[in-house]
Design a binder for these strands. Structure first.
Lengths: 236, 236
DNA sequence: CGCGGGTTTGAGTCCCTTCAATCGTCGTGG
DNA sequence: CCACGACGATTGAAGGGACTCAAACCCGCG
């Protein structure tokens, strides 16, 4: 039986976790250990724009945002990431990270040195396949966001955002209808390409329509079908 | 000396081309040949949403758009692809293509069966690295588009679009200041998340400002710096 | 209890869309 | 060779959605 680090063996993350594969691949070889279980406090940077790309990361616990900064301090949130999500794949191509990854709450991540991925990728076909699937999924997800930004009005985007969060929480065993927003209105707004005032307004509107119950960070979805309807309202 | 198919040895594509790597990897082995040099006529589909994912593609010549269709026939262009660009990576994760790839002009593509990528990836580390770099680049590019859609006004987006095209043409040895748009105004508008009327308007505006000379599909950029300035005008 | 950051809400403005009409271009067929 | 039709591009007018600016509010925290 293989000696797997405790953390991986008790880890409840979905199959997308590369770390576990690598730990297995690494077992029995006399090589530098994989740095896992990195701790980043709320507000801390996992990596910054321009940092040398050395490792991929899997979120173990906590909540992250990735942020791209424009010339003049204008910045945009390009993604929110929770347990099981891959971080840092944008650096593979240029060998430099293209955005900041910031913890929205105290968090644990697994760091996977890219050199290990490349080394063991040769032997472990399944590992390689997983990384590619993960990156492919990243592309598909970004397609979805582009779709959102390109074709939906602000209200529809916000509804889609809530439903997306809901699904992701559900997939991780949390309540799909009641959760805490770890990000501010401004961060949501940035991600969805709108103004933070507009986010507030639509939240209020949703509440007045009985779709959700929201106060500050606490969200309770009362009518999932209603939110869905709101999403496809313009479609008819 | 390795026997490389003529097409690859005379191919002027940038290093991103996976096909050539695979052809080399394949040399000397007795395996099903890689299907390259696929021809798709203008308006034809390279693949459709829902198609089983079997291969990656590299554009050899011609111009492609990728389109995602929403429920009610509303569709959005998620990308434009020219010589050297990778197509189809969105299907790796789900094993099904998530968008349509449509040729905007008669085109040639190299098809690379994914099974070959996986098979030879084990032996050829460099090949694996290239695929990952290509996918990573795809992610970075999508980040850029999201940035555009999320933070820029329509005029800025169009300017950025023209500059982006210009750079890509330049990288391929074509004139960066004079080129033919293979897509319609509506397709540009869809890609940039705006109305086709708005595209026309801004083209006219750019022309009246002496930034570009445009008639129908023919674009001549007269003032690159001016377009750049337009991009960062709001930044001050 | 007062402070600060985030949130909500209002009023006014403008950018962009929508709808529609006209124009230009290209391919086809008379 | 020209007329015609179809489709895309341009342009105008009008309306609305989202932003900007700003004030009031709320909540956590020292």
């Amino acid at each position: 039986m293989l000696r797997v680090p405790t953390r991986c063996s008790i880890c409840g993350l979905r199959e997308a976790c590369l770390t576990c594969d690598l730990m297995l691949a690494n077992t029995g070889r006399n090589e530098e250990p994989i740095v896992n279980d990195l701790h980043v406090a709320q507000g801390g940077y996992l990596y910054r724009t321009g940092d040398q790309f050395t490792a991929l990361y899997t979120v173990r616990s906590g909540f992250y945002k990735t942020v791209q900064t424009l010339e003049a301090g204008r910045e945009q949130v390009t993604g929110f990431h929770m347990a099981g999500d891959l971080l840092g794949a944008d650096g593979i191509g240029s060998e430099v990270h293209g955005c900041d990854a910031i913890a929205l709450e105290d968090s644990h991540v697994c760091a996977i040195p890219y050199s290990h991925v490349m080394k063991h990728g040769r032997y472990k076909r399944e590992l390689q396949a997983r990384l590619q699937r993960a990156m492919s999924g990243e592309i598909v997800r970004k397609h979805g966001v582009m779709l959102l930004l390109g074709t939906r009005r602000t209200e529809e985007r916000l509804a889609a955002f809530l439903l997306n969060l809901s699904e992701r929480f559900a997939a991780r065993g949390y309540s799909p209808t009641e959760f805490i927003l770890r990000m501010t209105r401004r961060e949501i707004a940035s991600y969805l390409g709108m103004n933070d005032a507009t986010v507030s307004r639509h939240f209020s509107k949703f509440r007045s329509e009985g779709l959700i119950d929201v106060q500050n960070k606490h969200v309770h979805i009362l009518d999932v079908a209603g939110l869905r309807r709101c999403l496809s309202s313009k479609t008819d």
